[in-house]
Computed example of a mutant assay.
Amino acid sequence: MLDQSESLYNQCLDLDPSHVDCHRGLAVLLVETDRPDRAFALMRNWATSQPQLADARIELARLYQEFGEGETAQKFLEDAIHQDGNNARAWLALGQIREAAGDYQQALQDYQRSYDLNSMQPQVAERIASMNRQIVSGAGGVTASGTRLAQQSAADVSKGRY
């Protein structure tokens, strides 16, 4: 079934070279079948062939983040925002990267920008509220419950999808 799935993803991309979910699905399939180099090549080629499309950079950043390369992911997200400053997914993803890196004030601003652009994101509203509480109650990086902000943030960010 994996071969058939790969074939169908490629057919989808033949019909619509900008299809975000087909690129993402194919990249996941390539990673899960021990071909991460092909997944990165797929995403890089997409970003190169469609430089006007912020989604290509967002998905490439996501792949880098999943492989533990947060700084590279952040660079691609900043490129995506430069390309399309009104992309709520890019702002959300950048907020998640910055939160995981411990830059809580900037992460909060990124989340707020994402929410301003698309208020139909309940998970973003929750992150904004949670971070506001943590920042106010935990000036030293510790929340009112005594949980380290960095540990809690890393766990929360790993649950999110952008």
Results as ranks from 00 to 15, higher is better:
Gly102Pro: 08
Arg44Ser: 07
Arg44Phe: 08
Ala56Leu: 02
Ser49Gln: 14
Glu99Ile: 02
Ala27Trp: 01
Tyr9Ser: 00
Ile58Leu: 06
Thr48Glu: 13
Arg44Pro: 01
Ala47Phe: 04
Asn10Ala: 01
Asp79Tyr: 14
Glu69Arg: 13
Asp21Asn: 14
Asp21Gln: 14
Asp116Asn: 15
Gln50His: 10
Pro51Met: 06
Glu78Arg: 12
Leu60Asp: 03
Ser7Asn: 13
Ile58Ala: 04
Glu71Thr: 14
Arg24Ile: 14
Arg38Tyr: 08
Gln106Ile: 09
Ala101Leu: 09
Ser114Phe: 02
Asp110Cys: 15
Ser119Glu: 14
Glu59Cys: 02
Pro17Lys: 09
Leu92Pro: 00
Gly68His: 09
Ala39Leu: 02
Gly95Ile: 00
Val124Ser: 05
Phe40Met: 09
Asp34Asn: 14
Arg38Asp: 14
Asp14Pro: 03
Asp14Gln: 14
Asp21Leu: 15
Asp103Asn: 10
Ala88Cys: 00
Tyr115Gly: 05
Ala73Gln: 08
Asp79Trp: 10
Arg127Trp: 12
Leu8Pro: 06
Pro122Ile: 07
Gly68Trp: 10
Leu77Lys: 07
Gln4Ser: 12
Arg44Thr: 06
Ser114Leu: 00
Met120Ser: 11
Gly70Ala: 12
Met43Pro: 04
Ala129Ile: 11
Gln96Ser: 00
Glu66Thr: 09
Thr48Ile: 11
Ser5Leu: 12
Glu59Pro: 01
Ala39Thr: 04
Gln121Ala: 00
Asp79Thr: 15
Leu94Gln: 06
Ile58Tyr: 01
Tyr104Arg: 13
Asp55Ser: 04
Gln74Met: 09
Leu60Thr: 06
Gly25Asp: 13
Cys12Ala: 14
Leu8Ser: 09
Leu29Tyr: 02
Leu30Ala: 04
Ala47Val: 06
Leu77Ile: 10
Leu63Asp: 04
Glu6Ile: 09
Glu99Asp: 11
